[in-house]
């Protein structure tokens, strides 16, 4: 694969970097990343990965664009209200970079479809907003040996961790199971600063890029937390957990399963 002058210009700021170069840019163009959730986290992640020339980007979301989304979901615009989020996201990504292929999955992600969904991708980004989905993505990725970036945002706070096969701990090592509905607030009830999705979703994109080009240290074994009001980032070391039911020594979870979702979660799209 030889670069055209146009591609050299488009990706020049990448190719100049010794950690990326021609090789890294080719790796990006040949890579496949799946983003689950085209919302506050998924929108910035999708924009940066598209701009970076990640060759194939999958985007899964069952929702349509709502006016209340536009405060943070920067991949959608006002004329997109009412449109499927996957379609709106695809149009924006292709407008940024016609080099890439965008696959859309206008569907709920469930235990039934997730193995097939993630199978063709190199890296998964969890941009969902509810615990059942986050646990489902964790379990499915651990079982399928897929690296992924988990994240959550609420109010002025955000956090993320990266899992790579055999480089645990996974999300379930830290949080055993979803809290009961309404026990801890989600961003729909609690609110969130739109830029928080930009900060954390961009970090997720950065993890995907580092994984693809194989440079630097991934956020495996750590939870990175961000408190915007205190303007404080903390990289917290996570203990290992041999008794984890999905990635531990004697796993009891052998295939993905769905937790029951609340009516509120379902209404929101996941």
């Amino acid at each position: 694969m030889a670069f055209t002058n146009e591609q050299l210009e488009r990706y020049s700021r990448h190719i100049i970097l010794s950690e990326v170069g021609v090789k890294g840019q080719k790796q990006l163009l040949q890579s496949k990343v799946l983003i689950i959730g085209a919302g506050g986290l998924g929108a910035p992640a999708a924009l940066y990965l598209a701009a970076a020339g990640v060759g194939t980007i999958g985007i899964a979301d069952a929702d349509s664009v709502d006016l209340s989304n536009l405060q943070r979901q920067v991949i959608h615009t006002t004329p997109d209200v009412g449109k499927a989020k996957t379609q709106s996201a695809k149009e924006t990504m292709e407008a940024i970079n016609p080099d890439i292929t965008v696959n859309t999955y206008h569907t709920f992600v469930t235990a039934r479809n997730i193995p097939e969904l993630i199978a063709g991708y190199d890296f998964i980004i969890d941009g969902t907003d509810n615990f059942p989905a986050k646990f489902l993505i964790n379990d499915a990725c651990v079982l399928a040996k897929k690296p992924f970036s988990h994240a959550g945002i609420i109010r002025f706070k955000g956090q993320l961790l990266t899992y790579a096969p055999d480089k645990g701990p996974c999300y379930r090592c830290v949080f055993k199971e979803p809290p009961p509905p309404e026990a801890v607030p989600t961003c729909r009830q609690a609110g969130v600063i739109g830029a928080m999705g930009g900060v954390i979703g961009s970090l997720q994109a950065m993890e995907a890029i580092k994984y693809i080009i194989g440079k630097g240290e991934l956020l495996t074994g750590y939870l990175l937390t961000y408190d915007a009001l205190k303007m404080e980032f903390r990289k917290i070391k996570l203990p290992g957990n041999d008794s984890c039911p999905v990635c531990g020594k004697n796993p009891s979870i052998l295939e993905p399963f769905d937790y029951e979702q609340t009516a509120c979660d379902l209404k929101g799209g996941h």
């Binding site: 670069f3 002058n5 020049s12």
Partner: peptide
């Protein structure tokens, strides 16, 4: 000679790689 900075360097770098 058919490109401008910084693509000049990028194109040279690509050729060298």
């Amino acid at each position: 000679t058919d490109v401008v900075c910084p693509v000049t360097f990028v194109k040279a770098k690509v050729a060298l790689e």
